[in-house]
């Protein structure tokens, strides 16, 4: 349905995305800023004749590529 990612993008002097700490000189901030609310809206057409839909929102945090933490999950039911 929809997906939004928040992350910090490290770049070197040339503006190239780099992973090594010794290479990163600036950070392009694509994260959630502190003391702020960030809003995302997802609009999804479900197709003619659909009578109901289950919506699940899952917030997942990845402290590293191999580590996944589901920090929030919320479900809603929509009827048409």
């Amino acid at each position: 349905m929809g997906r939004k990612e928040y992350w910090e993008l490290g770049v070197d002097i040339d503006g190239d995305h780099r992973m090594g700490a010794w290479q990163i000189k600036e950070v392009v901030d694509l994260t959630l800023p502190p003391r702020k609310t960030t809003k995302e809206r997802f609009v999804t057409e479900l197709g003619e004749g659909v009578k109901s839909a289950d919506v699940e929102v899952k917030v997942t945090y990845y402290p590293s590529a191999k580590h996944e933490l589901v920090i929030h999950k919320e479900a809603k039911k929509l009827t048409f």
Partner: peptide, 26 residues
């Protein structure tokens, strides 16, 4: 959505509030 066709559509608004003392993730 769309008069005449009436396509069932979900509009989902997700709000995330960062209550930490720094950006997330970091």
């Amino acid at each position: 959505l769309t008069p005449g066709k009436w396509i069932p559509t979900a509009i989902v608004t997700v709000s995330l509030t960062n209550k930490a003392g720094h950006r997330i993730p970091d």
